[in-house]
Amino acid sequence: MTRLSQFLARNWAVLLLLALWQGWVSLAGLNSIVLPAPWPVLRDVLSHPALYLANAAQTLATAAAGVAIGLALGALVAVAAWASRLLAGMLTPLGLIFSSVPVVALIPILARLLGYDISTVVAIVAVSAFFPTFVFVGAGLKDLPRGADDLFGVLGASRAARLRHLVLPATVPNLMIALRITVPEGVLAAILAEFLMGRSGLGFMFREAASRFAMERALGTSLVVTVAAVLCFSLAHRAERVVRTRWS
């Protein structure tokens, strides 16, 4: 198969969608307030690179900080739960409950609790990343022999050795799965939080553009959001694969 036909086989549906969009706008003769065609949207992005880049960088940095905090806390609590049977029994149902609940519903509560601030956005992302991480890393540790009480009782050196040789190898692959799952959720949570209460970032930019019917700007933001999300998603995916092959 040539490269072109391979490309077409993989992307025909996406291309079809774009063609339908362009065709619909042209045929219906819509003006740009209703629905701009693909090309003017792209032009808006390309002619304001600094604006888009700055906001995208801010959103991604916020999301990254939140995801990192959520992953770290989730893994930490999972290891603590591994060390204590009682703690595991108590935390596992809570972890399952919170990871099977629509987390976005918590955004308004967190926003109210912590104030309309960028640190709140980070906290929201961290919360959305925390629970899946706890559940996945916990599942990876479940097959390990229990640390029971000796994790806290035995000499420090042996505890460190056990952590390093037993717990860490079991944690990392599942942590990468958690990363793959939480990255798209984290990006979505960050953008939604910005949309609801932020003063900067892609989510805010989108709300601002939509409120004054600047559809090219709004769709341009959508485009950048999509590209950023897809990029994060595939990066996380690749990271997971690299770690999995190296680690085992």
Binding site: P184, L192, F206, S222, T226, V230
Partner: peptide, 8 residues
């Protein structure tokens, strides 16, 4: 694609 991007 985050849901918000499809909103418009």
């Amino acid at each position: 694609t985050p849901a918000i991007a499809l909103a418009p």
